[in-house]
Design a binder for these strands. Structure first.
Lengths: 211, 211
DNA sequence: CGAAAAATACCTAAAAACCAGTAGAAAAAA
DNA sequence: TTTTTTCTACTGGTTTTTAGGTATTTTTCG
């Protein structure tokens, strides 16, 4: 149906997975495999010069996290279709990647049929999940009921330092800011996460995979 | 060299990985692939009736954990060689699997050469790690430098409640204890984890997989 | 049983975090 | 270029945690 085959890239840090996927997809009539990439940097570099239609993207990568990479790709190359192929089953991760522009989310244990279907759906512009992912989405776990709050750059930075056990005083010195400012950010973080203190904050951030 | 090829089974919950491995190994002269298994139960069942020489085993499986499965296999079928092929990089996991009788540990991102080498070593009876695993074993990462402190029952309980954002006051009421007692436990927890405050405490506990 | 470990509870005092606001400047988005 | 968001900083007061102890009572285990 398509005039050209889908130029497809696989981004996964495991050569074995790349091998397996290549093998599974090599007989697909509408797919042209253009290569496997083991980290975020190499695929970004490749995208600068070459056209890609479809990216099968893992979440766990050595350099960047797949969620962020997805956003970065979609921001720069709007038309590229990104399908997440990961074994992370956390609801927050699924939701986040879709918000970041992914066209679907499959677990690595999904069948070739599911993969085929999702690619077809993605090309048509809709979003597609593998069966298990649909389940994950439908029954949110207690901890993840609250959507991950979107943090500003500063907030992320300060959250990180708080997690390192630093006091507002110390953070202020490190960032050349008043400790009072840090306190404000602290307050805002607590509010955004809807928690009462750092203990809960760090727990929540961990459950939301922010570290 | 061998009169017979090594009857090799792959145990991994990801069909894609199984595919990839099959592909990578199908041209090996000394290996006869007898199949892929997606969980612990199916391989155990298979072992009851069929002879297997080598098992490539993942740690993360749907039904049992690969470390335990390894022990179970080695207990029942002494002669089977088990090679772990996983992407879990925690030192404790590597050590545990070896103690459970595995003949080696490779990360999924290791090369075919490494895999080949490890299989050869394992057949000879020695234990073999992929390069990265050797590194993990030799210089334990920051998080794991401190052995997970062994906590008492009370401490675990209180840690849990602290993680829920409860104050010493609240915890005291909940457990019918003086808040001062909770403070003491708090202090002891900080000391055991060698941290300065709850933020670090919760981070550390998370990294040590205590939640 | 006796010793060690765990759990309990207290004191004092300082440090840090938390609460409830306000508000101007800078940066980003509409 | 407005408008909105983010970042900055403050006031003033309260609560909680942390740091340095000590000390008695239970449990647990050799």
């Amino acid at each position: 149906m398509q005039p050209n085959k889908l130029k497809t890239a696989i981004v996964d840090d495991h050569p074995i997975v790349i091998e397996g996927l290549k093998n599974l997809l090599k007989n697909e009539s509408n797919i042209e495999l253009i290569g496997g990439f083991q980290d975020g940097e190499t695929i970004m570099k490749y995208l600068e010069s070459e056209k890609v239609d479809l990216i099968l993207l893992d979440i766990t990568l050595p350099d960047v996290n797949g969620m962020d990479l997805c956003l970065k790709i979609k921001k720069k190359y709007r038309s590229v279709i990104v399908l997440i192929l990961s074994n992370r089953t956390e609801r927050s991760i699924v939701v986040q990647t879709i918000q970041n522009g992914a066209s679907g989310y499959l677990l690595k244990n999904s069948s070739l049929d599911e993969l085929r279907l999702c690619i077809a759906e993605a090309v048509k512009g809709s979003i597609c999940y593998s069966k298990e992912v649909t389940e994950i989405l439908s029954r949110p776990s207690r901890n993840e009921l609250l959507a991950a709050p979107r943090l500003t750059k500063r907030e992320k930075q300060i959250l990180e330092l708080i997690a390192q056990g630093k006091t507002s005083q110390a953070i202020g010195e490190e960032l050349f800011l008043s400790p009072l400012t840090i306190d404000t950010h602290r307050k805002n973080l607590l509010q955004k996460f809807q928690v009462k203190n750092v203990a809960e904050l760090i727990m929540s951030a961990n459950q939301q995979h922010l570290f």
